[in-house]
Amino acid sequence: MRIAPLVGACLLGLMAGCKQKSHNSLPILGHREPVTKVIDGNTVTDTLYHSIPDFQLLNQDSVLIDNHTFDNGVYIANFFFTHCPSICPIMQRNLLKVYEKYKGDERVRFLSHSIDFRHDSPAVLKTYAEKLGVTNDQWQFVTGSKADIYNLSDSYMVYTKEDSSAPGGYDHSGHFLLVDQDKHIRGAYDGTDDTQIQLLFDDLEILLKEYE
């Protein structure tokens, strides 16, 4: 009988511990390596985290944008193409939900890379964005050379490939990548899965709290 409150307290403690953990912070995804530097005569070991390299791409208004466009906030990136019949409509439908929630909130931006460098010119992307219901520059749709886009997709850890046997001619994974102000990837979500989208909504709030 006397042990019950003790067990209760332990359980409560455990629950609080768990709760705390989930609200703490998001992990930094990707490759990491230790770097050893000598500062003021002392040897210091630091961790070098994977981050998105600098880029320059053409957006739906035919304006060159670069990584600094996303400097003062976090952003969600994905890879798609406008006439993709398979997973893209589901992804963009889901990303549109996130966009609509944060529309006007400059802390959150969106970056959709077209992997169809042949067909998706800025004009095509502009029409697509308007039809989708994107009315401001918070959501950027970009195109670039095949090398630029496909190398970037590797940095975002997204599989992309030209494949004539895939529907629409390109094969790619439908993930959303949550990127923080330091260009570290803090979360990866299957853009076609409703529960993963809910997780993205939750994680986004956790990440935004880091900058409050």
Partner: peptide
């Protein structure tokens, strides 16, 4: 369903 949606709702001005 990918384009026209689970409830046949379409998608914006696209579908």
């Amino acid at each position: 369903q990918n384009c026209h949606g689970t409830k046949g709702e379409g998608l914006g001005g696209l579908y």
